[in-house]
Design a protein around this nucleic acid. Structure first.
Lengths: 209, 209
DNA sequence: CTGTAATTACAACGATCGTTGAATATAACG
DNA sequence: CGTTATATTCAACGATCGTTGTAATTACAG
């Protein structure tokens, strides 16, 4: 409402960066947990301060403001998903079926056991971010979708997959990975591994020629 | 935090009920619009008052408190979905394929053009409801899932559908109906009708033997 | 017309929110 | 050691939040 500055935290210490970013990460992690549990708007800065053991006024030395925390949280949550495609060798797998399966399993395990509520957080709190930052976040997610679409196109070209609209289906696949966090109330019966298998099967049935 | 009373609005006028519920509905509709646009926590009672033209203190004559409004909003949004199965003849269709297709198209058109953001609201703000009310809301949604599962089971018995876990797939189908509202940023290319067709095709491909 | 119930008009409460500045202590460098 | 950069300690601000009670007014019943 008041200022709309850069997402960067104002203080940029030149020496001993480690400690600064360590504290920042400490804040982000605690905030993530609180945001997931109570929601962004329902979590006060005082709660974050208490959870981290850092005084409220001190908090503002490490982060710019509350919105900045939310942005940093999203930033952290999406990192593993992108690294999956960039650093790990998924895009190098030749067989489209094996590649798609690996991508799905990889994305499901990307955030460890966290992914569950993390994605929910993204969908839930995206309206709390200013448009500029939201676009930044969503652009990252679009990258993931693009990677999936690339796999689909290759499979389609080899006549292994039969998908009408690769963009739509890629979106649907990424979207499906969040069924559990978003609909946990109806799906308590499955554990992570069962769910992985079910998803791979469903997706393959959906795209196979 | 303070009281946890019944979800019913305290005042129950005996005569001239119409006007009372008319005002209540007026509040709910405006609130729905505000909640969808800004989010529940970010919408103040004063904004609702201003939007309806009713004084803040008078608002509390028609509704119990802010949470009550959110509950009534959800209550209103889910009504068309349930009526689709109960009042309309979808459950009477014999052919599972035609029945499933009709159910999907019906659910997509249930809320008219509203459905889009309405579902987003449910997923986004469910944590703002106390557990008791949340369970009530989710139970309604489970009814929809149950109806879908019934259709799937019939098709499976007739060997028209091939689904491993009807419960999971039913959840997945209902879930898929909300792709657009939840991922609108990536899917601006499709209009409602195109999306209807795509969904029916995808779902059928997913369940057909 | 009279009495009763439904609605509106009206202001103030305590609580909590996000945010800020200055003075002091600690650690790193020459 | 002395200087400089980094980190911690501390209290108070204005703003907005959700909520409440009572008295005056309207609409309807007999």
């Amino acid at each position: 409402m008041k200022k709309e500055a850069a997402p960067k935290t104002e203080a940029t210490p030149k020496r001993n960066k480690d400690l600064f970013y360590k504290r920042q990460m400490q804040i982000i992690k605690k905030a993530t947990h609180l945001f997931m549990k109570k929601g962004y708007a329902q979590t006060s800065m005082r709660e974050i301060a208490k959870a981290t053991g850092i005084d409220i006024r001190n908090l503002y030395y490490f982060i710019k403001n509350k919105e900045d925390i939310l942005f940093l949280v999203f930033d952290m949550l999406h990192k593993p998903e992108l690294e999956l495609f960039e650093k790990q060798g998924i895009m190098d797998i030749d067989d489209p079926i094996a590649q798609l399966s690996a991508a799905i399993r990889g994305l499901l395990d990307a955030g460890g056991r966290n992914l569950d509520d993390e994605v929910l957080l993204l969908y839930r709190e995206s309206k709390s971010l200013p448009k500029r930052l939201l676009k930044n976040i969503l652009a990252r997610e679009s990258e993931v979708v693009s990677h999936i679409e690339t796999i689909l196109k290759k499979g389609k070209a080899r006549k292994i997959f039969a998908v009408e609209d690769t963009s739509y289906t890629a979106n649907l696949i990424v979207y499906q990975l969040c069924v559990y966090p978003l609909r946990h109330w109806n799906m308590k019966e499955y554990n992570r591994e069962e769910l992985s298998d079910l998803m791979v099967k469903h997706v393959l049935k959906m795209v196979l020629a």
